[in-house]
């Protein structure tokens, strides 16, 4: 079977661990992360409190900003990368996120439909009085 190519492996990183870097580079990574996170936080709080932007866009903007900030934390503080040494860590993360998405999304969807068809007692009473 001559078409086999053998790839050396054995390189694997623990979650949170960085490739070999000097201390200075590592500190710089955290500084960049901190600055980005602070910027995103400030933007979130600003957008939530302002009437300078189109109001219906605010929830979407807040969610996007939150996701971006989580990404910043993952990359700069938790050192998650797309490299092959991180595959297992990223797969586990992806599985976790899928579950979070299913649980939160599913619950909100299901419960909003239940409420449509069978409102809680107080609404029910209000509707019929």
């Amino acid at each position: 079977m001559s078409d086999q190519a053998h790839v050396p492996t054995g390189h694997d990183l623990a979650p949170g661990e960085e490739e070999q870097h000097s201390v200075g580079e590592r500190i710089l990574g955290y500084v960049v992360g901190l600055v980005l996170a602070l910027l995103l936080t400030a933007t979130s709080f600003f957008i939530a409190g302002t009437d300078l932007v189109w109001q219906p866009s605010i929830p979407v903007a807040l969610i996007v900003l939150a996701i971006a900030q989580m990404g910043v934390h993952l990359v700069f503080f938790l050192h998650i990368t797309t490299g092959p040494d991180n595959t297992n860590n990223v797969l586990a993360l992806a599985f976790g996120l899928l579950i979070v998405f299913l649980v939160v999304g599913g619950t909100v969807w299901i419960m909003s439909h239940l409420n449509q068809n069978m409102p809680p007692m107080d609404q029910f009473i209000r509707m019929h009085s």
Partner: peptide, 28 residues
């Protein structure tokens, strides 16, 4: 080192799922 950190990583994901229930409850 990898085994320990990975196990803890898996724990963190489970913890985040736990939080997601409270988030879902809040949203509802």
């Amino acid at each position: 080192r990898i085994v320990t950190a990975y196990g803890f990583w898996v724990f963190l994901l489970s913890d985040i799922v736990m939080f997601s229930c409270f988030f879902a409850a809040y949203a509802v």
